[in-house]
Computed example of a mutant assay.
Amino acid sequence: MEKRFALVTGASGGIGRAIALKLAEDHYSLYLHYNQNKKSITELMNELERFDIEVIPIQADLGKPDGYKQIAAQIFSLHAVVLNSGNSFYGLMSDTNDQIVQQMTQLHVASPFQLTRELLPKLMSANNASIVAVTSIWGQAGAACEVFYSMVKGSQNAFVKALSKECALNNIRVNGIAPGAISTAMLDGFTEEEFDQLNEDIPMGRVGKPIEIAETASFLLSSKASYITGQIVGVNGGWY
């Protein structure tokens, strides 16, 4: 069987880690991108030892203009890409300074575009390649006190829709996943009262699990989704 390789950016976080483990179950060999959390990647690689796959860690800061080059230079065979890197900024629009604007624009908009541009020739030479971008519910609905985060996540949704049309005849599918509230480190700062209120606001009465995002990514990358492209799949418990 031909070895199939997938790149997961932001693989050291809760969602990235779950996606990597699920894709290993799907028999993908993996390029695991991370920035600062080498400990998490080392632990993930130890966990992946039970699978008969190749695992290649790649360190790069996608918040910097040339970060994408460090990833692209280390990738050879490639069949799937999961664009998952990101962070949030919580605060009023008036508190969002130019440094935050520049860093988040690079991380969420410019770097995914530049990295995908560099990797497209490899995806075009693969058989039935696929790209999945992990965006956010706030890119669809918008959020007060997360105006710029909502803006860049909305940009990612537009990127998915536009690129899917450009790549369709090359047999490359491009889709997005817009998670709602997911049980990751991003919710660690919530008080018990805030967490209870969050659960109450979600029709299904609970936050999501990283595996639920991973299962969606696995489906979208698979042949089961062979006629699905240009879609933003909301995984949010009915919240939006």
Score class of each variant (00 low, 15 high):
residue 113 F to E: 01
residue 113 F to T: 05
residue 113 F to I: 12
residue 114 Q to V: 00
residue 115 L to N: 10
residue 115 L to R: 09
residue 116 T to S: 08
residue 117 R to T: 08
residue 117 R to D: 06
residue 117 R to P: 00
residue 118 E to Y: 04
residue 118 E to P: 04
residue 118 E to R: 11
residue 119 L to I: 13
residue 120 L to Y: 07
residue 120 L to N: 05
residue 121 P to M: 14
residue 122 K to A: 12
residue 123 L to V: 08
residue 125 S to W: 07
residue 125 S to R: 15
residue 126 A to P: 08
residue 127 N to K: 12
residue 132 V to T: 11
residue 133 A to F: 12
residue 133 A to E: 07
residue 133 A to I: 14
residue 134 V to W: 04
residue 136 S to C: 04
residue 137 I to C: 00
residue 138 W to R: 05
residue 138 W to V: 02
residue 139 G to F: 01
residue 139 G to D: 01
residue 140 Q to D: 06
residue 140 Q to N: 06
residue 140 Q to W: 00
residue 140 Q to R: 06
residue 142 G to K: 04
residue 142 G to I: 05
residue 143 A to K: 10
residue 143 A to R: 09
residue 145 C to D: 10
residue 145 C to H: 07
residue 146 E to S: 03
residue 147 V to T: 14
residue 147 V to K: 00
residue 148 F to V: 02
residue 151 M to R: 01
residue 152 V to T: 12
residue 154 G to V: 00
residue 155 S to K: 02
residue 156 Q to I: 04
residue 156 Q to C: 01
residue 156 Q to D: 01
residue 157 N to L: 03
residue 158 A to K: 02
residue 158 A to N: 11
residue 158 A to G: 13
residue 158 A to M: 14
residue 159 F to P: 06
residue 159 F to Y: 15
residue 160 V to I: 15
residue 160 V to C: 07
residue 161 K to E: 15
residue 161 K to V: 12
residue 162 A to S: 15
residue 162 A to L: 03
residue 164 S to V: 07
residue 167 C to P: 00
residue 168 A to H: 12
residue 168 A to F: 13
residue 168 A to S: 15
residue 168 A to D: 09
residue 169 L to C: 04
residue 170 N to C: 06
residue 171 N to S: 14
residue 172 I to A: 04
residue 172 I to P: 04
residue 173 R to E: 09
residue 175 N to Q: 10
residue 176 G to F: 02
residue 176 G to A: 14
residue 176 G to D: 08
residue 177 I to V: 15
residue 177 I to A: 11
residue 177 I to H: 08
residue 178 A to W: 08
residue 178 A to Y: 08
residue 178 A to S: 15
residue 178 A to C: 14
residue 179 P to S: 13
residue 179 P to C: 11
residue 180 G to R: 01
residue 181 A to R: 04
residue 181 A to L: 03
residue 181 A to Y: 06
residue 182 I to H: 13
residue 183 S to T: 03
residue 184 T to A: 06
residue 184 T to F: 05
residue 185 A to P: 02
residue 185 A to C: 01
residue 188 D to C: 00
residue 190 F to I: 07
residue 191 T to V: 10
residue 192 E to M: 02
residue 193 E to F: 07
residue 194 E to A: 12
residue 195 F to N: 11
residue 195 F to D: 09
residue 196 D to K: 15
residue 198 L to D: 08
residue 198 L to K: 06
residue 199 N to F: 02
residue 201 D to R: 13
residue 201 D to H: 11
residue 201 D to L: 11
residue 202 I to W: 02
residue 204 M to V: 14
residue 204 M to D: 05
residue 205 G to A: 04
residue 207 V to E: 10
residue 208 G to A: 07
residue 208 G to K: 08
residue 209 K to M: 10
residue 209 K to W: 03
residue 209 K to Y: 07
